[in-house]
């Protein structure tokens, strides 16, 4: 951890992430207004003392909406990543450990899936499953699976022929024990780093789906949907687009920088 905080990117990433996590956990409790309450007299206002970040087209307080939307938005990214990473790494580990024909079959199928652009693939799945937050999360998880499988497989492959694994095999340990105690712990580093960076992608794809009307449904305060709903009013009050847009950017940046720093920390070649 100290290593991460030493680098400037790591420090900034950690700070941003801490801020985002704080808002995610406590946000809905500290909203100054009801995030859904209309106020016909205070529509599309810029920041003021009453409304720190301004109001949207229905006169709803933007700060309150931002705070209340944080859990949905961040949880979406985390949930989709955990699902995708979980399934992807299991597949990757199986492929890496099994090797041979199983490995080739699994990897060729995944290569095929990887060939499709991420957003397009997600859209395809959402179109198939129908709109909604759960469907969108599943879609992002499925999209993440092939990439994660590839990364975990390569991590496993690099570990599989190490001396300590060979030693375990020589001791006559069972395959499962070797995978669980020797291979996985040593292959986990790259997987965690990749997962952290992927959270930011998941949040952005989730926001994109919300923006396209395929993810969260109004009047949800999911940030991507907030941008989409307010877009029509962009010229009258730029704040109602900028506020949720910036929030998405900050969150994505936080996860990204933190993931980068994490990678550097794990990488022995860059260590001092």
């Amino acid at each position: 951890m100290r290593k991460i905080l030493k680098s400037p990117t790591g420090l900034i990433g950690t700070l941003l992430l801490a801020l985002v996590l704080f808002v995610t956990i406590f946000g809905p409790w500290i909203t100054p207004y009801d995030p859904q309450a209309f106020d016909a007299r205070a529509r599309l206002e810029g920041p003021s003392l009453a409304h720190w970040l301004g109001t949207d087209q229905y006169g709803r307080d933007l700060l309150s909406r931002l705070l209340s939307g944080a859990p949905a938005t961040v949880a979406f990214g985390l949930g989709a990543t955990v699902l995708g990473v979980g399934v992807g790494s299991v597949i990757g580990v199986i492929a890496g450990v099994a090797g041979g024909r199983t490995d080739s079959v699994i990897m060729r199928v995944l290569d095929g899936m990887l060939a499709m652009p991420e957003l397009l693939f997600t859209l395809l799945i959402v179109t198939f499953l129908g709109g909604g937050t759960t469907q969108a999360m599943l879609a992002v998880a499925v999209t993440f699976t092939p990439g994660m499988a590839r990364i975990s497989r390569s991590a496993v492959l690099s570990v599989r022929t190490r001396e300590y694994v060979l030693a375990a095999q020589a001791r006559g340990e069972s395959g499962a024990w070797i995978v669980g105690r020797e291979v996985l712990p040593n292959a986990l580093g790259p997987i965690i780093v990749e997962a952290t960076i992927r959270v930011s992608f998941a949040i952005m794809i989730g926001a994109t789906l919300g923006f396209l009307g395929l993810g969260a449904q109004p009047p949800s305060t999911e940030w991507g949907l907030m941008v989409a709903e307010a877009r029509q009013f962009m010229f009258r009050n730029p704040w109602c687009v900028a506020v949720p847009g910036l929030a998405i950017a900050v969150t994505a940046l936080g996860f990204n920088l933190f993931g980068d720093a994490l990678r550097d920390a794990f990488d022995p070649k860059r260590g001092h």
């Binding site: 309450a37 229905y58 709109g131 009047p219």
Partner: peptide
């Protein structure tokens, strides 16, 4: 929003 006060819990589905 306005119907919520009357006890209508409307879920919105856009498409």
């Amino acid at each position: 929003q306005t119907a919520a006060a009357a006890g209508f819990d409307l879920e919105i589905k856009t498409m």
